[in-house]
Each structure stands twice: as C-alpha cells, then as structure tokens.
C-alpha cells in the first residue's frame, strides 16, 4: 500500500511539470501581451514594464525563473492587477470556491446516493424510471438556466434568499450557488449509483445473503459497498472541477471566487495569473485522482493486493 502511494506521488510530479511547461509556452504563443491596451503605451514605459517583469529575457530563462519561484510557493506578481501578487488574489478567492465546492459535492454525494438507493430499492417498475428521468433533466438543464430561475423564484418572488453577492460568506448567500453547483452532480451521481446498485443487487453474493434471510439493511450495505467504486471514480474528477470554482456560477451570483480568473487571466494575457490557475487546477486533479485511487484500494481488497504502479 505504501509502495502504491509513493509510486503514485512520484508519477504526479513529472505530470505536473509537463502540464506547466505546456501551459507556459502555449500562452506565450498566443498573440498579444499583458500590456496591450486600446491606447498604446509610451514605448519607453512599455520597455521598462517588460524589463521589471523580466519579460525581455529569453523565453527559456523566463520559464526557469518561473519554476524557481514556483518551487518556493510563489506564483509571482499579477500582470493585470498590478498591486497584487497572484498568491494574494488566490488567498482570498480560493477559500471561497473551495467552501462552495465542498458543500456542493457533499450535497451531491448525499442526495445522489439517496436518490440512487431509492430508485434501486423501489419495488415497482416506475421508481427507477423516475430517478433516471429526473437525473437526465438535471444533467441536460444548463447552469445558466437553473441559476436565474432560482434567483427569480427564491430571491425576487419569495424574497427569502439574496439573489447574489458573497456578503462575507453568510449562509443565506451560499444556498443558491451551492444548489446550482450541486444539481448536475446530484443527477450524475444518482444515475451512476442507481445503475451500479442494480448491478450489485443482481450479483450472486447478494443472492447468497437473501438465501440466508439476512435483514434488508445488511443486504443493502453489501450492495452499496459493491456499488461505490464507479461512483467514487467519477467523484474524484468532479470534485477537482467543482472545488476550483465555476466561471458561470460565480459570475451569475457575483461571487469573488477563482472562476473569474480563468477568463480574466486568459483574456488579459495575464501570464502569471493563467499559470497560477493552471497549476492550481492541475494539482487539484492530480490530488483527487490520488485520493480516488486510495479510496478504491481501501474499498476493494483485490485492488489493494494486485494494484501495481504504472
């Protein structure tokens, strides 16, 4: 198990380096630069700016500088918000996105599992179809339709929740964005869970439990355990995406999270900001993949003994 863990971590480092390199050079290939604006800057000033940010050095040297500062945990100064470093921007934005994302994922796991379990347990033919249908609806409806509808209903008509803003994380302000983030995830988890449970319940070892007249909670406990692996595999990737912020949700609800930096950074050719978001997202994906692998190994003894790195 330790060997398995170490091997995965060792694999993650070169992967991250490759992603950083790709992002760094691709960004520089894009036309334009961080100091372009409608009114051209004085050439002297532009030159000084480029000098201060070391943008006049050879590209490889810049890459090397970037890696060095990254190794110290420094994402560098933002080229667009010139009074802030990227670290400062992230320090306020990332906790907000993580707070919303964590709650959304928790909600998705709980509600999705409950729905999937309900569908799989239902004795009638209709139960599973209702869950499937509702889930399909949740997957198909785009976030930019759901969010304004929620604002309209709970904010403008019922006046019980604020339509937007962060308000230092007051719980009222979090409810609608969390629901919006969670809905498509709930739908996917419910569908995955229901399908996996239906397969699990048809397995011979579940028939054995029935043949021994074991109580329902025991049978469903075993079935859930067998149904979790595919759901966990999905949750890993979903968590990495949801926790690092959603552009659309954060924009609609006016939340100062990470999401907007994806867009603003790329449009403003804010090299350091783009690199920062890439590193954060890539690290999150790698981290959650590692967690998924560990959880799967914990869930299934066969993975635990047979899994080999590579």
């Amino acid at each position: 198990m330790l060997r398995f863990f170490l091997a995965r971590v060792a694999m993650a480092v070169p992967t991250l380096l490759i992603i950083i390199a790709l992002a760094f050079f691709l960004m520089r290939l894009a036309p334009g630069g961080p100091f372009d604006s409608a009114r051209a800057l004085d050439p002297e000033i532009a030159k000084n700016l480029r000098h201060i940010y070391k943008l006049d050095r050879p590209l490889l040297e810049q890459f090397w500088f970037y890696l060095q500062s990254l190794a110290h945990g420094d994402f560098g100064p933002s080229l667009h918000w010139r009074d802030f470093t990227v670290n400062q921007l992230f320090a306020t934005a990332l906790p907000i996105s993580v707070a919303l994302g964590t709650k959304a994922m928790l909600l998705a796991v709980l509600a999705g599992t409950a729905l999937g379990l309900g569908g799989a347990m239902s004795k009638s033919q209709i139960g599973p179809r209702i869950v499937d249908g509702a889930a399909l609806f949740g997957i198909v409806l785009p976030v930019f339709v759901v969010a304004p509808l929620l604002q309209l209903g709970f904010g403008l008509t019922l006046h019980i929740l604020p339509v937007g803003g962060w308000n230092d994380g007051a719980w009222q302000n979090q409810i609608l964005p969390v629901i919006t983030l969670a809905l498509p995830q709930i739908a996917i988890v419910a569908r995955l869970m229901q399908a996996a449970l239906r397969d699990a319940l048809a397995m011979p070892h579940i028939r054995t439990l029935r043949a021994f007249g074991m109580p329902g909670f025991h049978i469903y406990g075993h079935a859930l355990r067998a149904a979790f692996p595919p759901v966990v595999s999905y949750l890993g990737l979903a968590a990495a995406n949801v926790l690092t912020g959603s552009v659309i949700v954060e924009t609609i609800f006016g939340i100062p999270g990470m999401g907007r930096y994806f867009v603003d950074g790329a449009l403003g050719r804010d090299y350091t900001l783009v690199m920062g978001t890439v590193v954060v997202v890539a690290a999150a994906v790698l981290l959650f993949n590692l967690i998924v692998d560990l959880v799967l190994a914990w869930l299934d003894p066969r993975v635990r003994y047979e899994s080999r790195p590579g």
Binding site: M203, P204, H205, R207, T208, L209, R210, A211, F212, G213, M214, P215, H222, R225, A226, L299, D300, P301, R302
Partner: peptide, 25 residues
Amino acid sequence: RLDSLLGRRIAVVFQEPMSSLDPLF
C-alpha cells in the same frame, strides 16, 4: 417469517464459490 427460517433452519450452498461470497469482505 420466511427470513427467520432462511439461514437458521434452511441453508443453501451455491455452485460458484467465487461469486457467491462477497469479494469485498
């Protein structure tokens, strides 16, 4: 009442010993 008989008074051994036991426990 059937469940209270099964496992206690009537027990079954199935054909496939690999799949009739839960692999995760």
